[in-house]
Design a binder for these strands. Structure first.
Lengths: 185, 185
DNA sequence: ATCAGCATGTAAGGCGTTACATGATTCA
DNA sequence: TGAATCATGTAACGCCTTACATGCTGAT
């Protein structure tokens, strides 16, 4: 029955640094975090309400003109909950690579299709990689701050794995092309 | 409203080679496939029924003694559906790395915790890697067959990225340890 | 005999997405 | 004045997991 909603941890993590609105949280998640975790308004707002009911966070309303916004602040119980999660041994890295599914079952179609799908993946990887490198360059300047080191390591994880993806793409394309030119009987 | 249940494609992909029971499918998914896609009985059996209703697959009952098993066979409509999916440009690679979430927000806890979490990830990666290498060694012997090439490329993707993970782990641990010994005030 | 593995399912519930609904503000 | 962005939410629905329920078979 253990509640297992990781979006709560994402939000507590963000709120441990500053007070934010649901909308702010969404924007933050759409940044670097989206590389390894995603979240929509439909999951953010209900989760914020739940967490407030459970005393993990607290809200206050601020108005600028007629417009109101709801800022959330983390409570001690929220910080504890975040720390407990960090200390849990068990993690689930749930990876759903549709690209690999298509690669694995690509044998039912012509080899060109597989090649094309790899190229699509390659382009997408290249795009993400260039974004991650910008994040890294910015983080490198402020590595002295404790939190920034964590951010930096996370971003380099992304860069290193995406570079490995690109190397694999080159190799896979070469193998597929070789086999197309010199098909075994 | 487009049905987007990828487990259908996994099952059609498996059934495109041989007739299988739901139980067989589960076993296959728990093999190499589990590295990039997962499936439980609770998702497999209902999906098989849906696909039969939609004419993508067909079932027949075989009995051995008093025991019955339901074997599924792919129909032309199923093969077409599989091929259409392979030709679709749009893919979603949905990666949820809880490890990276903990790394990113690890700044609220002591550095030891982050280090420990990296070590847990490293061990897990090492375990998976050794399994993937066994798959690769077996596939290398039968590369002449068309489908095996696809399986081989998929497995090498896993190996290459997992090796990159390990390299990153070593680097990250070194950086964290350096910073702990010579902390910047 | 007993236990692991074969074999098929259902029920409850959690998590999440997309689309919808609403309205204010800012900037070109 | 119109579009983009700020801002908060709900409703419907889809997908999946876990746990439960059941019973056969083969090997030790």
């Amino acid at each position: 029955m253990a509640k297992d909603r990781k979006i709560d941890m994402v939000m507590l993590g963000l709120l441990s640094h500053e007070d934010l609105t649901g909308y702010d949280i969404k924007k933050r998640i759409d940044g670097v975090i989206s590389f390894f975790w995603k979240g929509s308004f439909g999951s953010i707002y209900p989760a914020l309400n739940d967490m407030e009911k459970n005393g993990l966070i607290e809200s206050r309303t601020e108005s600028r003109g007629a417009r109101e916004k709801i800022l959330y602040h983390i409570m001690d119980k929220g910080t504890e909950s975040l720390k407990d999660w960090l200390r849990e041994e068990q993690v689930s890295n749930d990876l759903k690579y549709e690209t690999l599914l298509k690669l694995y079952f690509g044998g039912v179609e012509e080899r060109d299709i597989t090649l094309h799908n790899i190229e699509l993946f390659e382009e997408e990887t290249r795009r993400t990689l260039s974004v991650l490198r910008i994040y890294r360059d910015n983080l490198e300047k402020v590595l002295d701050d404790g939190d920034h080191l964590n951010y930096y390591l996370t971003v380099t994880f992304g860069i290193d794995t995406y570079e490995a993806y690109l190397k694999w793409c080159a190799k896979a394309k070469r193998i597929l092309e070789e086999r197309s030119e010199h098909p075994e009987k």
